[in-house]
Lab assay of single mutants.
Amino acid sequence: MAAAAAAGAGPEMVRGQVFDVGPRYTNLSYIGEGAYGMVCSAYDNVNKVRVAIKKISPFEHQTYCQRTLREIKILLRFRHENIIGINDIIRAPTIEQMKDVYIVQDLMETDLYKLLKTQHLSNDHICYFLYQILRGLKYIHSANVLHRDLKPSNLLLNTTCDLKICDFGLARVADPDHDHTGFLTEYVATRWYRAPEIMLNSKGYTKSIDIWSVGCILAEMLSNRPIFPGKHYLDQLNHILGILGSPSQEDLNCIINLKARNYLLSLPHKNKVPWNRLFPNADSKALDLLDKMLTFNPHKRIEVEQALAHPYLEQYYDPSDEPIAEAPFKFDMELDDLPKEKLKELIFEETARFQPGYRS
């Protein structure tokens, strides 16, 4: 834990890192770190609560700039109880001085990944967590956004079992017609939660990839272990087919990539493993919904509104309290091709509203 900075004593240090967030945020305490930044909790002297502050230093890398800009653009436009918001952003007053960006968010005690390492969940908890994931996802999908990296560590939890989806750095506007060349190379989302079509096709992607990830998360809540822990690309596919069985001819016809289709045709026939054999203690309604989410063919996979209306979630289902976005989200430009200098300018502009004396 960093010592509390005395008023006016300059930035606090946390594990050798400068955290320049005073005077409003003090009493910093280390939480963890990701690929390009550290997260601390801090005391907000204005709202009198502890908050989470993520320090991001992305400006050396085009990919990190892209992810940072995506996350900020999306989260500043989203407003939903099951999606983490941005409360404040701290950065230098000029673009030349801006080396880091500090993002202030609600402090959540833990995440689903940490929880599943230590606790076996009751059916009631599984049901409530799944409902909140789908409630947040309904809003995301209504904005025409794909999260693309749903996994237990991106689901934040607090002691009252509130759940918030975080990390929109890989999110995209849904565009089933656009052929994202190089899709697989830039697709760094965790393999275990990846839909089979991501490994088999490169053309376009749809909201059904997020539903697949939610199915993987439900299976993990039922058993405290990942359902498809593939060691590499082909191993991942083999794990999936080992449980779902061989795809039907109709399902194979959806695979545009001939090499991928021929690979699947070359494999020995596998039978589907019954879900109640894998999860003998699970609620039968939970397994019915799991089956509809972990469907090989993305066109037959359940959609988020149908999933919310499934009998497993009937005690929570309330369409009048499951809000959607006001308007579909649009990125003005494809960020993939922009140089990091341009992305830095866009991050600077996007964060201006939090600067003292800002006038829109």
Rank of each mutant, 00 (worst) to 15 (best):
Y205N: 14
P356S: 13
I103L: 06
V49R: 10
L69G: 07
L76F: 01
V173F: 10
I324Q: 06
V14G: 15
K164C: 07
H232M: 00
S202T: 12
K330E: 06
L76T: 02
C254P: 01
V51N: 12
Y317W: 01
I95C: 09
Y102K: 13
T206P: 12
A9H: 10
Q119K: 10
S248D: 09
K342E: 00
S360A: 14
A52I: 12
Y102H: 05
L134I: 09
R135L: 12
F129N: 07
C166L: 06
I83R: 00
E350F: 01
Q62F: 09
L200R: 11
G182H: 13
I165K: 07
Q119F: 01
G16H: 12
L28H: 01
R261A: 07
P311K: 01
N262L: 10
E334S: 04
I83V: 05
R70T: 00
I133N: 15
D332M: 09
L267C: 02
E71I: 01
K344F: 07
E350P: 06
H80R: 00
S246K: 02
I126Q: 04
L163K: 00
A260G: 09
K344H: 07
I347L: 13
L278P: 11
F228Q: 00
L335T: 05
A171G: 04
K340T: 05
M333C: 09
Q62N: 12
L69H: 04
Y317Q: 00
E186F: 01
P93N: 02
L237Q: 14
K203T: 10
R261K: 10
N281P: 01
A2Q: 00
Y187I: 02
T160A: 02
Y36C: 15
M199F: 07
C65R: 13
F279M: 08
L200A: 08
N262D: 06
A5N: 11
I211V: 09
Y64C: 15
A286P: 03
K151W: 09
P23I: 01
L222C: 06
A309N: 04
Y312R: 08
E322P: 00
A35D: 12
N297D: 08
A174T: 13
G22D: 05
C40W: 12
I302V: 05
A174V: 14
T160K: 11
E81T: 00
P274Y: 08
I324P: 02
S320L: 08
S284P: 00
Y64F: 15
V101P: 06
S284H: 10
V304L: 08
T295E: 04
C65H: 13
A42P: 05
L156Q: 14
C216K: 04
A5K: 12
D283L: 03
D336A: 12
E334R: 00
H125A: 10
N224E: 11
H269P: 06
H180V: 06
T206H: 13
L218V: 04
A4H: 09
S248E: 07
E314P: 04
L130R: 04
D106R: 04
K151L: 06
E345N: 08
C166R: 09
R301W: 00
V46D: 15
D337V: 13
S57G: 15
L267H: 00
S122K: 05
E341C: 05
D251I: 01
P274K: 01
L338N: 09
N82T: 10
N271W: 03
L237W: 01
S202N: 11
L343Y: 08
Q236D: 07
F59G: 15
I103D: 05
S122E: 10
L264G: 01
A4L: 10
E220I: 06
A309G: 08
C161R: 01
Y312N: 15
Y358H: 12
V18I: 10
L157Q: 14
L115C: 00
R24V: 02
D179E: 12
D162W: 00
P339K: 13
Y233T: 10
M108Y: 12
E303W: 06
V51G: 14
F329Q: 08
D44M: 13
N238G: 09
P298T: 14
V39G: 00
I31T: 00
L75D: 11
D20V: 13
L346K: 11
S360W: 03
D124W: 00
D149S: 03
Y102W: 07
A2L: 01
D332F: 07
C254A: 10
I302A: 04
I209W: 11
Y316V: 08
L343H: 11
D149C: 01
F78E: 01
N47H: 11
L287K: 02
